[in-house]
Amino acid sequence: MAQSAPLLLRVVASSVTVAGRAGKIIRDVMTGGELNIVNKGKNDPQTEADRSAQRCIVASLSRQFPNVAIIGEEGPSNCEVPSDWVVTDSDQQVLGVRLPQDLEEVEDKDLCIWVDPLDGTSEYAQGLVEHVTVLIGVAVREKAVGGIIHQPYYKNPEDGSLGRTLWGIDGVATGGLQLIPPPEGKRIITTTRSHSDGTVQSALDALEADEILKVGGAGHKVMLLLEGKAHAYVFASAGCKRWDTCAPEAILRAFGGTLTDIHGECYSYNAETSHPNTRGVLATAPGQQHAWYLKKIPDEIKQRLA
């Protein structure tokens, strides 16, 4: 079934399974206690879990899709990995999805896979593991279309096992999560836990939130929107990158939400684009008025992020 499915479905289906394997690697590194932290920059640590999870993801996907561009946060990866890190299985639910014709005809050259192997590294290193996600985004030309978010430390209520994966293909289908709307009559905003500054705070002040949730990781913040715990994710800063937002944007859109820069424009995710999200991030939960948030953010803040 896998080989007869359209390319986009095969990439998303494979990414669902490999994200789960990367999540196990992340847990194993933490259990082993050897994080081997190096600092890439201010408030930008990298651990052995980041490096190993990316090697697992890139090795698995590049062997199956050698002509598809893959861009990972941790730079070029050595694809010589232990054999049990190479995942070739595919998620059968994804493979059973029916695509519209334009997505059925997508070719290798049209795709770019954006990988954040461990989103929320600062929190992971501090033991705040509930903030951690694995992000694999699939762009078709310039648009974020397919997304996978894996939560390595999500505890399943049925059996207590760890790990949950949700996926979405914009305009087509979603899986792994039952959408919960945020509470009515109040405004809860989620934002950065470790990369705040005066501009970020000024944007939050302008939105007059009833509650602000400061958490790590773009994936975690978008999860809060889908789980009904926040109405919007606001980050008026150039601090995050394309691999932080490709998967969350695709999934959020697939569920009916919106993610743009703070000017209301979508980021480009083709392989040639620059990596920094220089114009900030504004995401709103399904059913929320994205335009209201755009209008409330002061022009002077938008000009700083022009």
Rank of each mutant, 00 (worst) to 15 (best):
A69C: 12
T133P: 01
A250F: 07
K221H: 14
I212E: 05
G168T: 02
K109P: 06
G176L: 14
Q101E: 12
A218D: 04
I188R: 15
V16H: 02
L118V: 06
V138M: 02
I169R: 10
Q3R: 11
L128P: 09
R164Y: 09
L99I: 08
H220M: 09
L95W: 10
I57E: 02
G217M: 08
E158S: 13
G185T: 04
S4A: 14
Q93K: 15
E105I: 05
E104I: 04
S52I: 02
M223Q: 14
E208S: 07
A53R: 04
K229P: 08
C246Q: 07
L7W: 11
T191W: 03
P157K: 13
P6M: 10
C266S: 03
R98L: 11
A306D: 14
M223H: 11
R21V: 15
V11F: 07
L162S: 14
L282M: 11
A206S: 15
V172G: 13
I25E: 01
L179P: 08
A230S: 13
D108M: 12
N270S: 14
A285T: 05
G160T: 11
E208M: 12
S62Q: 15
V29L: 04
E73V: 06
G176F: 12
D205F: 12
I148N: 04
E249F: 04
L226E: 10
M223I: 13
V140F: 03
K229M: 12
A19G: 08
V200W: 13
H231V: 12
P76C: 11
Y154S: 06
G264K: 09
F255S: 02
D119H: 02
D205R: 14
A203R: 02
S4Q: 15
N78E: 14
A285H: 01
G171T: 05
L224I: 00
H220K: 15
P66E: 11
Q289R: 13
G280A: 13
V145P: 03
R98Q: 15
I57T: 03
H275P: 00
A218F: 10
S268T: 07
S60D: 03
P100Q: 05
G96S: 14
A13S: 15
A139V: 06
V145T: 08
V81A: 08
E265I: 08
W243Q: 06
Q288T: 07
R63M: 11
P298H: 10
A232S: 14
K214Y: 14
C56V: 09
S15Q: 05
D89V: 10
A271G: 05
V132E: 00
C56I: 07
N39F: 03
G120R: 02
K24S: 06
V29Q: 01
G176Q: 13
K24L: 02
R98M: 12
T17I: 08
